[in-house]
Design a protein around this nucleic acid. Sequence first.
DNA 1: TCCATATATGAGCATTTGTTCATATGTTCA
DNA 2: TGAACATATGAACAAATGCTCATATATGGA
Lengths: 108, 108
Amino acid sequence: MEKNESISRIQGAITRNSELFEELAQLYKIFADSSRVKILCALTQSEMCVSEISEFLSITQSAVSHQLRILKTSNLVKTRRAGKSIIYSLTDDHVRTIIDCGMDHIAE
Amino acid sequence: MEKNESISRIQGAITRNSELFEELAQLYKIFADSSRVKILCALTQSEMCVSEISEFLSITQSAVSHQLRILKTSNLVKTRRAGKSIIYSLTDDHVRTIIDCGMDHIAE
DNA sequence: TCCATATATGAGCATTTGTTCATATGTTCA
DNA sequence: TGAACATATGAACAAATGCTCATATATGGA
């Protein structure tokens, strides 16, 4: 059976960059939960503390903290302390771009 | 305790559009697996049949079929029959845009 | 210093997810 | 029509995920 040259090149490229795709999937995994994507979208509008985020998600403060830890570990958000509160904000504008990109698709 | 006007508006916007964010998370969920993202990236280069895709992923033909079904149900890919083979291709260019968007972030 | 408030963390649990195995469906060709 | 090939589907299962509950840590004010 003849083997298509072009397909073979593509297969090779994917295989060689396997780690890159793992990383890419890992990134999307972060956006793949409605709580997290809501948090991220809120933070594109303004920095917020944990309790403010808790207010509009219907989940406990604990759950919010767990999610924020994931976002922080992935370097998507950063924190600063303000008295008793911890203020969360986006580390850069990539998040906004990624969300917009997905929204564009949904809008069809 | 004083309630920040601007934060309150953001919270409201997120809550009102809750379903939209569910949908957005659902979209990212599709990209949140390395097998699927590899398939999608391959298809940005060329249409392919199932066995060609099986070749470069280290998973069984069955697993590939299951993943392709998810992609098709989500309308990210379409199919056509060519003899014994089923040829998969992207339904539109949004997929490419979304992948590029994520890649940009990884590149830092 | 003691208490209230704000956030973080660990254990436990139910749900979801991605894979494999076995098998069914569908197509081509002798 | 029957064998070989290509793909799809269902069941089963291990691993990952997101939540809650209980509790720990940290800050500010009386």
